[in-house]
Design a protein around this nucleic acid. Structure first.
Lengths: 132, 132
DNA sequence: CTTGTGGTTCAAGCGCGCTTGAAGTCAAGG
DNA sequence: CCTTGACTTCAAGCGCGCTTGAACCACAAG
């Protein structure tokens, strides 16, 4: 199976066809080949949608993802992508750290037997004593 | 400074006063004490807002965070919070893994000198060969 | 007293990421 | 032939997380 209809693709990537059309309209997916008016996708689209979903989970907006994926492959795009990527890596790092902290906090808090997250004695990070 | 007005609090936590009022309206923050009609917050609110923001970044909805923080501290709430927390920990773990993967992918891709994320030779993960 | 600053409530609006509805096209099956 | 069902386009709608605007209130400085 080297090609997919929009329904098949949607089922595989667990999105609705409408979402895929929406992505196309935003330039997140290249304009699909049409066969008697219907979209037909190459199998490689699976990978692309997987990337989109992953980036999305990591907090990129669809507009940013569009830049990352560089659908139109225009001349300056490579540099654009590099700039965005360089900007995003430290953001991702910080994000990962924070999420780790939250995960551990939740786990510790469960272990300590406290009533709820807010009242847990173990938690102290993240309280801004600092700035004005 | 043990108590804060809404403007002070907003400045410290880097949110707008409107967001704090909104949180209160959702039950995310306890109904603030009023002094001649105006909200006055104890310093502990800083910590609470920090928790809210952290949980939010980790992909919890405000409704879920409300449950985690258990504002109303009702009888069954402790169990509710534990259930939610237990459900969320593996989600957070998976999320962290995925974000790590993305971070590394972006970094590798930058290093490999490819044109863009989609065309990078190094990337192969995340392609669903599996299910129907 | 007046003006300014920063609060209050409430309802409406906005941006994002889709979804839904209306109206139409096409291909296969009974 | 006629239905069924999956698709098409386009515009409008929705839920979330706030923001904004209108109308009002309270205290402080000039």
């Amino acid at each position: 199976m080297r090609e997919l209809g929009i329904g098949d693709l949607a089922r595989k990537v667990k999105l609705r066809p409408s979402a895929l059309r929406y992505y196309e309209s935003l330039g997140l997916l290249p304009t699909a080949r049409r066969v008697t008016g219907r979209r037909v996708y190459p199998a490689s689209t699976l990978r692309r949608v997987a990337l989109i979903k992953m980036a999305q989970r990591a907090g990129f907006t669809l507009a940013e993802i569009r830049q990352l994926l560089d659908t139109d492959a225009d001349r300056g795009a490579t540099k654009q992508w590099r700039t965005l990527a360089e900007r995003k890596i430290p953001e991702l790092d910080q994000f990962i750290q924070e999420t780790q902290a939250l995960r551990n906090a939740v786990a510790d808090c469960l272990a300590c037997g406290c009533m709820n997250f807010d009242s847990c004695q173990l938690l102290s990070y993240g309280t801004p004593e600092d700035d004005a």
